[in-house]
Structures are given as C-alpha cells and as structure tokens.
C-alpha cells in the first residue's frame, strides 16, 4: 500500500521541523508583539515535539515547561503589563531589515557549516526503529551528567552547570534591582 511506503517517523520529523521554522519566520515577519510571542510559543512547542520524536521525553517536557510554560508566559506577561498601545505594533525600517538579514544570514551559514561538519551526519544512519529507545528516554543520565558523572567517559557538566546557575541568579537579582524604580504617584497626576 501507498501509506506503508511512507516513513512516518521522518514524516513527523519534517512536519515538526517545518512548523518550527514556519513559526520562527512568523515571529520575524509579524509586527504585532503579542503575536510574535504567540508564534514563538508554537515554534518552541514544535521543537519540543522534535525532542519527543527523538525519544528524549525528559528534554521535551523540559522544553515545554521551562521555555514555553515559564519563560514565554513571563514574556507575554511583561508585554501585557508594559505595552499598552505604543509598542504593540513594531514597525521595522528597510535599512534595519538589511542589517538584520545580513547578520542573521551569516549566523545561519555558520550554523549550517558547523552542523554539516559533524561526521555522524554523513554516516549511514540506522532506521529509527532499530535505535534502542531505552537509552534515550531516561532522565537519569542527564541528572548524573549534571552532577558530574558521565557514563561515557566524558567529563561531567557540574562546573558549567554551577556557573550557569550562579549567572542566572545574578541576572535575576539584577533584573529585580533594575525594575525597582521608586516613584511616588498621587491621585492628582
């Protein structure tokens, strides 16, 4: 049958990848800031779908929880609180377009170059069904790696993890400090 010929795993991979890209473009092209956030949600959600597809359920759920459920909610929250009317619609001038396009294009090229230089990509890859799922699905290796133990003889991520955590803490405190602009408002003004 025709349907049997389709590799469903690849099909869904393409679907999610295209969704992610399309909504990423949507973020770029729309001028309404809330819609931007909305497209970003969908784009990140599609990325989470890719993770699930790859069997990395923990990472996928993480993506949903932290980026989609946490960061973006806060982002929209901030947008709603501060941008009543002036900033809701963002117009981009042509010269800005050119600048951003060249910068973004350069970054994309770099990314593609790095991606294609990974040797595993050029190897004959096994059929998805043959990959042992058990190894990818587990969260424990991630936890272990973060606490400094890696099962394959690499170095654990304890130190980077610590640095990132401290960095985030500093950022949070700094953001809180910056946001505290004391002012007195009376009902007269």
């Amino acid at each position: 049958m025709l349907l049997a010929a389709v590799d469903w795993h690849s099909y869904f991979f393409m679907l999610f990848a295209m969704l992610a890209c399309a909504f990423a473009m949507g973020v770029l092209l729309t001028s309404n800031i809330v819609r931007m956030a909305f497209y970003l949600v969908l784009s990140l959600g599609a990325t989470a779908g890719l993770y699930f597809l790859a069997g990395a359920e923990f990472v996928g759920a993480m993506q949903l929880m932290i980026y989609v459920g946490g960061t973006l909610v806060l982002l929209i929250f901030g947008v709603m609180l501060t941008a009543q009317s002036r900033f809701v619609s963002m117009k981009i001038r042509p010269d800005e377009w050119i600048l951003v396009a060249s910068l973004g294009g350069a970054l994309l090229l770099l990314l593609l170059y790095v991606a294609f230089s990974v040797p595993e990509w050029r190897m004959e890859h096994p059929h998805p069904a043959e990959i042992s799922v058990a190894e990818t699905k587990l969260a424990a290796p991630i936890g272990l790696a973060l606490s400094g133990v890696r099962l394959d003889d690499g170095i654990g991520y304890l130190f980077p993890f610590l640095i990132v955590s401290v960095h985030l803490l500093v950022v949070l405190i700094g953001a809180g400090y910056l946001a505290r602009t004391k002012r007195r408002a009376t009902s007269e003004n």
């Binding site: 609180l81 501060t82 946001a179 002012r183 007195r184 408002a185 009376t186």
Partner: peptide
C-alpha cells in the same frame, strides 16, 4: 498618612 499617595516598586502603565 495619606492613602492616596502610593509608592510603586515597578513602573507600569496606568489604566
């Protein structure tokens, strides 16, 4: 002393 004076921590838009 005067409840009409409110001190704000974070500046947001009035509605």
């Amino acid at each position: 002393e005067d409840p009409r004076i409110i001190e704000f921590d974070v500046r947001t838009d009035e509605m």
